[in-house]
Structures are given as C-alpha cells and as structure tokens.
C-alpha cells in the first residue's frame, strides 16, 4: 500500500483529454454554440454585403466585397414612413430616455431598499410585498390606467412620461436588489452610525452608498439593457418623433413601403443591439449577476 502511494500520485487520475466522452461533450457544445452564434454572424455578413450580392443568394456566405454603406444608410438615411433621417434619431431618443430613467429609477429604488432594510415602519413590508407581486402582473392590465395618469399630469407622449413609466416598472426588481444588498450590510454598522448621530440621509450617503458601489453597477447594467431593449412602453407612451430606437427599428425593417434593403435592415438591427452587446461584453460576470437578479422582471 505505502509503496504504491509513493510511486503513484494520490487522488484520481487526470482524465485523458481526448476520451470518447470528452469528444462527444465538446462536439455537442461546439455544435450548440454555432446555433447561438449563427444569427449574429448572419447579421454581420449581411450588413456588409451589397444588395446585388444578397440577391445572389447564400445568407451564410461571407461578403465577397465588403461595404459599409448599409451601416451609413441605416444610421442616417433609413426611412420610417415619410421620415428618412435614419436610426440616429431613435438612437438619440433612446439615449435621452435612458439616462434620466436609469438615474431616477436607481436613485428611488436604492433609497427604497435602504429604508426597507434599516428603517422598517408599520406597513413597509406590505408595500414591498405589493411591489414584488406587481412585478408579476402582466403590464397589459396597467397600460391604460397609466395613459390616464400621464394625461392628467400632462406627460403623455413626452419623454418625461416614459421616464416615469420606466422608473415605476423598474422599481420592484431594483428595490428587491437593493433591499437584499442593504440587508446584508451588518446591522451593527447602522446602529453605530445612529449612535454617532447620523440620520436617515446621513447614513445613506455617508455609510451605505460608498459600500454599495458594486450593487449600483449591477443595477445600472440591468437598467441600461432593460430600458434600451424596451419596445412595449416606447410604442405606447411616446409619439413618432420621440420613438426609442427599438420601435423605430421595427418600423424601418417591417415597413411595407419600398424595396426591402436587407443589408440596411441588418445594419440597423445590429446598431440597435450594439449598446446592450457592448455592455454585455465589458461587464462579464457582473452582467450575469445583474440578469440573475433581474430575471424576475421577465
């Protein structure tokens, strides 16, 4: 026994790299990866081809002659109805919607989460429960009452109205995210700050906020992708001039007028997907954390 353990390393033998099981495993993973990569690949190659080349046929073939014209046209010239100023308008609309929505929704939700974690009051848990249940209610049941509310305060069709809608519908998941994070901060720290004479806002800004930076990054990732990708609220609560990028994209691609320019369409689609894709590839693991937290948003 002892002799053997001297000769052979203890523990299980490292499995051979090319065992039959491993070949099947990696083979399957590679084939599946192709299914996931295919649409991205097709979008890219199509957007770099000219229309004659596309009419020749194979969506999967790489471009013979690379052209960036479809990208330029998608950005600056693509038509929705009579407007032919491209996706750039939708892009800037989306940016104008995105920034205040992200800031406002995170500001409110982080304060909510903080209050729920450390300043519980009678009924606070009830409101929180309603908020969480609200995340599961189909948006369709709340769409029209919100139209009325926005009309009452004069923000229907206005970007500010859409910002409010994003803040409201982002609130359940973000509040949950922040509440869970702030609950994980030791209560003694909060108590120490109270003994030191810090109040509600003092503790929030001086103690909690500096400790919560990672969760703010998660929340920003969650909100940027979520709000950028929104279609439903954009189509309902804005006017054509203020349509966000997703709505404008759909109108460009699915427009029934004129000849279909598939390369321009794919360039436009890629342009719209670019912002969340960039965030996805930069943020890496934090994105996974963000979507795992935001998954209930559905």
């Amino acid at each position: 026994m002892t002799d053997q353990s001297v000769i052979e390393p203890s523990g299980s033998k490292p499995s051979k790299r090319f065992s039959r099981g491993n070949i099947i495993l990696y083979g399957t993973l590679i084939v599946v990866s192709m299914y996931y990569l295919l649409p991205l690949y097709v979008m890219i190659v199509t957007s770099l081809k000219g229309m004659p080349e596309i009419r020749l046929g194979n969506v999967f073939a790489p471009p013979i002659e690379i052209t960036f014209e479809p990208w330029v046209r998608a950005w600056a010239e693509a038509c929705t109805g009579i407007n032919c100023d491209g996706l750039s308008r939708g892009f800037w609309n989306s940016v104008n919607i995105l920034i205040p929505s992200v800031v406002l929704s995170i500001a409110i939700a982080s304060v909510n989460g903080y209050a729920l974690a450390h300043w519980k009051f009678k009924g606070s848990e009830t409101f929180f429960t309603i908020l969480i249940i609200g995340a599961f209610i189909p948006y369709q049941t709340m769409l029209y009452p919100i139209v009325i509310l926005l009309r009452e305060i004069g923000l229907m069709g206005d970007l500010a109205g859409l910002v409010l809608v994003h803040t409201v519908f982002g609130m359940p998941i973000l509040t949950l995210l922040f509440r869970n994070y702030f609950t994980s901060i030791p209560e003694e720290l909060f108590k120490a700050a109270r003994v030191d004479g810090a109040g509600f806002w003092g503790i929030y800004f001086r103690i909690m906020l500096p400790m919560a930076l990672p969760i703010f990054v998660v929340a920003i990732i969650l909100q940027v992708t979520g709000i950028w990708n929104d279609f439903l609220f954009g189509v309902i609560y804005t006017k054509p001039e203020t349509y966000p990028m997703t709505v404008q994209l759909n109108n460009i691609v699915n427009s029934v007028q004129g000849v279909k320019e598939y390369n321009v369409n794919m360039a436009a689609t890629l342009l719209t997907g670019l912002v969340p894709l960039i965030i996805y590839f930069i943020s890496g693991k934090l994105f996974v954390r963000g979507i795992a937290a935001g998954a209930v948003k559905g």
Partner: peptide, 22 residues
C-alpha cells in the same frame, strides 16, 4: 457561457428581426 448567454442581452425586436431574416 458567454456564447450561450449573449442573446439574452439583445431585445426581442432585434431577436425577431434577425430570425426573420434567417
């Protein structure tokens, strides 16, 4: 993991249009 997850970063509109083309 990155390959399997990246489509989730894209909107349904982008997803729908990409597959409409394919």
């Amino acid at each position: 993991r990155s390959i399997f997850l990246y489509p989730f970063a894209l909107s349904f509109v982008v997803t729908g249009l990409a597959w409409q083309w394919i």
